[in-house]
Design a protein around this nucleic acid. Structure first.
Length: 897
RNA sequence: GGGCGCAUAGCUCAGCUGGGAGAGCGCCUGCCUUACAAGCAGGAUGUCGGAGGUUCAAGUCCUUCUGCGCCCACCA
């Protein structure tokens, strides 16, 4: 029977299905274990898994799996977001293909289409997350519009309304004339566009003068209700208080006012004021009690207030008005101007500030609580700079417009009577609370999608009910998300959590970078440069994708995605597969390796292996466990992964496995005990590393772990899995990192062996000794301790260097003639290579060695000669430098001049 | 206009609280050594963007300049 040499990624689905069936992802609110909670950033129901999701969820899964193995009751709460406008836009596009509009379907009919859509596609991303290996508690999967979460939304709206924190008001909102809805500031994207600055003038009433000004939007002149100059601007001092005439329609006369808002340095120092269509002007209008003239229809056409221009589009009106001003001699000039234009991030339409009756959340107090959370240290970001972004936004926040003129979403629970009285209630009220009118109509608008996701960390746990889940799992431990939604989401969750749960929803926020294409550009549909994670999973397996995503880069920075980076990762997993294959073939003992911390500890202490290499690798295991734990807890996942990879590939495969081969293959009768010990240690060290790796590459590690545990005889890896179906690595305890398991003596000794082996190999290569030629190696140790060390590992050294035998002489023995020497710590190694020794070249080689040592010594001497260094550097460092100098000097002395 | 990030080997990037420059890929040499050629052994490669400064000591901290990139912003 043959064991496959190549690891098979196609087993992932089967393994996942077994985990799910076994209920391994479930988190129990009644558990005694300490909780560890993460709520997933709910993907939109329109979403298909992209690289950003793959990275985001890999990070979360690594943390959750690690904590689960550490013994926490780990809950990863999954779910999806209804994504009001995004979903509505997509479904409308689908309907448009059939020539249907949402108006034709009516509200009920359209919503039914949306629910159908959700039924069909809302779960797509969930199944895709499963193929990535995510260990979410799927039975708890929530949706922002399901019953419980909708109840939470209504509860919050009503409470805030009753507290006066939610109000309805006519304000300027960002209006998308295409989507026919208001959008939040955060949904407006500003892009610098080449445009024009139009210079015009208005006649000043009662004089022959004109006052000139500039604007980028001439059509808004139709709504001008003032002209403003800077207070104290001498040029216009005489005009303030007079009136200018808008030369359209009835020739409206508007006041010339002075306001701080005007920058006298800019342009002519004069600004026309359009309170109904510009946020700044709106403020000016409030200060000066100016009328607001709305000149736009919802579709962007000029309305009746625009008189003769009514019915024109924004663009057409702009041109016609400019022409008309020219005709009246009031046009001065146009100058080119690059300036930022606001566009709707969903459809790219230029956003119009427009007056609308909308619902707002008053932000001052809520913002303050979110600021407090950060300033008090109760909320931490993985990098300070993200905290600054958060604070900067909060310090400049404006009231949050929460009503959207859409149908898909949580409908605003406000009801109006014929008189226009407002009644807010979770359930439809029987009568107006003001006048008792029974004929009520509900507000047609729905809430901003972030209104519901702001509640996600506690609404998913059952709030407003007092549930065991809330008690156990709130607040959550960490939020892992993208830089792009700090304002949209993170901020709003923080103040919502503090407001309704009296506690921040998470203590840590981990912001990770963006996955870019190979050229450093964002992956986007329009560029067509996206890489589908599912294709990568198909080709390489989820393990490879996951490990690659978190390796070799720091997660808070953006990363470029190269397919070429997948191969080294795949190669590593194949290496691990083969290492396990080797261990199972050469150490097929029926005896299981110790499983718990206690067992490992007692193994290492009471049954301390007698062989140095066993002690060494177990010591390295304990250090690895400590380092990996530290790095994961510091959320340095890439460094943690690197440590594990290095351990498995370098320490375990390249050194330890080779070192123990002589013991495994020894034929002597008395070799049994040593062989058993080697086999046990092989299995213990490997399974330790596999457990530490599991959070990163869950599938392959499950296979290998079960194979190692259950292997009875030398069966195939795959066969043994079925026999141990009830067991899993997911709940295996992590290897002990107890510092008492560190064996510094063994570490130092193995370092010496490695040094010697490397030296011998280098000489072999340099002398071009073919690997097939078995050479002789003679070691002359400096003392008995070194002699014992080299003797105990002579077979290993022979195997590692391709030597026929390694002879260890007594300290002080005579060096063999005609041999090449390799100087190591506390030993000189001779390779009798008569035929190959070229006296001249050998002298040159030794001279080079000497020079290297002399340089090292000189460097240290320079340091030690520096009085400042001696006086101010830590004493331990100085001592270490001295020790190194002594060692180098000793080695130098051994190289014959 | 404000804020932030990046600049380290040919390429892609690590390098956390300052103490002898690293990895992977690529490249050169030699190996199908009975776990693995998706492998093994050996090797070459860097004024750590420029200039100042702090320090006994700077890739690491400060200032400044240059070149990319991102975010925020109501300057008409």
């Amino acid at each position: 029977m043959s064991i496959p040499k190549i690891y098979d990624k196609n087993r992932e689905k089967e393994i996942y299905a077994r985990w799910e069936t076994a209920g391994y992802f479930r988190a129990d609110a009644a558990s005694d274990k300490p909780p560890y909670t993460i709520v997933i950033p709910p993907p939109n129901i329109t979403a298909k898994l992209h690289m950003g999701h793959a990275l985001n969820n890999t990070i979360q899964d690594i943390l959750i799996r690690f904590k689960r193995m550490q013994g926490f009751e780990a809950l990863w709460m999954p779910g999806t977001d209804h994504a009001a406008i995004a979903t509505e836009v997509i479904v409308m596009k689908e309907l448009a293909k059939e020539g249907i509009t949402k108006e034709q379907l009516g509200r009920e009919g359209f919503l039914q289409k949306l629910w159908e859509w959700n039924e069909l596609y809302g779960g797509t991303i969930i199944s895709q997350l499963k193929s990535l290996g995510c260990s979410c508690d799927w039975e708890r999967t929530r949706f922002t519009m399901d019953e419980g979460l909708s109840d939470a939304v209504l509860e919050v709206f009503v409470r805030l309304y009753n507290e006066g924190k939610i109000y309805r008001g006519e304000r300027l909102v960002n209006w998308c004339v295409k989507c026919g809805t208001s959008i939040s500031d955060a949904e407006v994207e500003h892009e610098d566009k080449e445009s024009f600055l139009y210079h015009f003038k208005y006649p000043v009433v009662g004089t022959n003068e004109c006052i000139s000004f500039a604007t980028t939007r001439p059509e808004t002149m139709l709504g001008d209700t003032a002209v403003a100059v800077a207070p104290g601007d001498g040029r216009y001092a005489g005009l303030v208080g007079k009136f200018a005439q808008v030369p359209f329609g009835e020739g409206r006369e508007i006041p010339i006012i002075a306001d701080e808002y005007v920058d006298p340095e800019f342009g002519t120092g004069v600004v026309k004021i359009t309170p109904a269509h510009d946020p700044n002007d709106f403020e000016v209008g409030v200060r000066h009690n100016l009328p607001r003239i709305n000149i736009l229809r919802d579709n962007g056409e000029i309305n009746e207030n625009g008189g003769e221009y009514a019915g024109l589009t924004r663009e057409a009106a702009r041109e016609k008005i400019t022409e008309d001003m020219k005709a009246r001699g009031l046009f001065v000039k146009t100058t080119p101007l690059a300036h930022a234009v606001g566009e709707h991030d969903r459809c790219g339409t230029v956003v119009e500030p427009i007056m609308k009756l909308q619902w707002f959340v008053q932000m001052d107090e809520l913002a303050k609580s979110a600021i407090d959370a950060y300033e008090s240290g109760g909320l931490k970001f993985n990098r300070e700079r993200f905290g600054k972004i958060y604070m900067n936004w909060l310090n400049n926040i404006r009231d949050w417009c929460i009503s959207r003129q859409l149908w898909w979403g949580h409908r605003i629970p406000a009801y109006y009577c014929a008189e226009g009285h407002v009644t807010v209630s979770k359930t439809a009220p029987d009568a107006c609370t003001t006048c008792g009118d029974k004929n009520l109509t509900q507000d047609p608008d729905v809430l901003d999608t972030w209104f519901s996701s702001a509640l996600w960390p506690f609404s998913t746990l059952g709030w407003p009910e007092k549930t065991a889940e809330l008690e156990k799992f709130y607040p959550t431990d960490i939020l892992v998300t993208d830089r792009g939604i700090i304002f949209h989401w993170v901020v709003r969750m923080v103040f919502s959590g503090k407001k309704f749960m009296q506690e921040v929803p998470f203590k840590d926020v981990f912001i990770h970078g963006t996955v870019l294409d190979g050229q450093g550009r964002k992956m986007s549909k329009s560029l067509g440069n996206g890489i589908d994670p599912l294709e990568i999973i198909d080709e390489f397996g989820a393990d490879v994708l996951r490990l690659m995503l978190v390796s070799g880069n720091s997660l808070e920075n953006d990363m470029r995605f190269f397919r070429e980076r997948l191969e080294p990762t795949r190669n590593f997993l194949n290496k691990l597969w083969n290492a396990t294959r080797f261990v199972m073939m050469s150490a097929p003992s029926a005896q299981r390796e110790p499983e718990t911390h206690v067992e490992i500890d007692s193994c290492s202490r009471s049954r301390k292996p007698s062989c140095i290499e066993d002690r060494w690798i177990l010591s390295q295991c304990a250090r690895l466990a400590a380092e990996v734990t530290e790095k994961i807890e510091a959320h340095e996942l890439g460094l943690a992964a690197q440590k594990i990879v290095d351990f498995i590939w370098d320490e375990f495969c390249d050194w330890y496995v080779e070192m123990v081969k002589p013991r495994l293959y020894a034929k002597e009768e008395n070799a049994q005990a040593s062989r058993d010990e080697a086999q046990k240690t092989l299995r213990l060290a490997l399974s330790s590393a596999i457990k530490l790796l599991h959070p990163f590459t869950p599938f392959i590690t499950e296979d290998l772990f079960l194979a190692l545990r259950g292997a009875e005889g030398a069966g195939t890896i795959n066969e043994t899995i079925n026999e141990t179906i009830n067991e899993t690595i997911m709940y295996a305890s992590l290897p002990s990192s107890d510092a008492s398991l560190y064996d510094e003596a063994a570490e130092k000794q193995i370092d010496r062996i490695k040094e010697a082996v490397r030296g011998i190999r280098a000489v072999r290569t340099e002398k071009q000794v073919p690997p097939s030629q078995k050479i002789a190696v003679v070691v002359i140790p400096e003392n008995d301790e070194a002699r014992e060390l080299f003797e105990s590992l002579h077979s290993a050294i022979a195997l590692l260097t391709g030597a026929k035998e390694v002879q260890v002489l007594a300290p002080g023995a005579d060096a063999p003639d005609g041999a090449v020497s390799v100087v190591a710590h506390q030993a000189v190694i001779y390779l009798p290579l008569d035929s190959l020794v070229d006296a001249e070249k050998e002298a040159a080689r030794l001279a080079k060695e000497r020079k290297k040592l002399e340089q090292e010594i000189a460097r240290i001497d320079a340091k030690l000669a520096n009085e400042g260094f001696l006086a101010k550097a830590p004493p331990a460092l100085v001592a270490a430098e001295r020790e190194k100098r002594d060692e180098f000097a000793a080695m130098l002395a051994k190289i014959a001049p």
